[in-house]
């Protein structure tokens, strides 16, 4: 699946998007973030405070406990600040 990062999350991780293949034990957005944190220090640092992370699955807002089964695109980003 494709994972997208925006704003300071993109800057801290160093890429705007990447293809990832988490193990089958990763079933939710929260699980995906926990798994990403184990990959490298920059992920652990970027996701240190998950209260300031928002999620969209296939371009629809979602929660941390949402299932990622069948998702093509998961976006992780800080709270939005448009307008």
């Amino acid at each position: 699946m494709q994972v997208l990062y925006f704003a300071w999350l993109r800057e801290r991780i160093g890429v705007g998007s990447e293809d990832v293949s988490p193990p089958d034990t990763v079933t939710t957005v929260g699980g995906l973030i926990d798994w990403l944190k184990t990959r490298e220090d920059r992920y652990a640092a970027a996701f240190a405070d998950t209260k300031s992370i928002r999620v969209a699955i296939d371009q629809e807002q979602a929660d941390f406990d949402a299932s990622i089964a069948g998702a093509r695109e998961i976006a992780l980003f800080p709270p939005v600040t448009g307008g």
């Binding site: 704003a7 969209a56 807002q61 980003f77 800080p78 709270p79 600040t81 448009g82 307008g83």
Partner: peptide, 26 residues
């Protein structure tokens, strides 16, 4: 406008006169 500000995925980054840059907080 109220929902645009809280639901639409935009992010603002400010470049300050002193050369620093910061992401605007919600």
């Amino acid at each position: 406008m109220d929902f645009l500000k809280t639901r639409a995925p935009f992010w603002k980054k400010e470049a300050a006169i002193d050369g620093t840059a910061r992401w605007v907080e919600a």
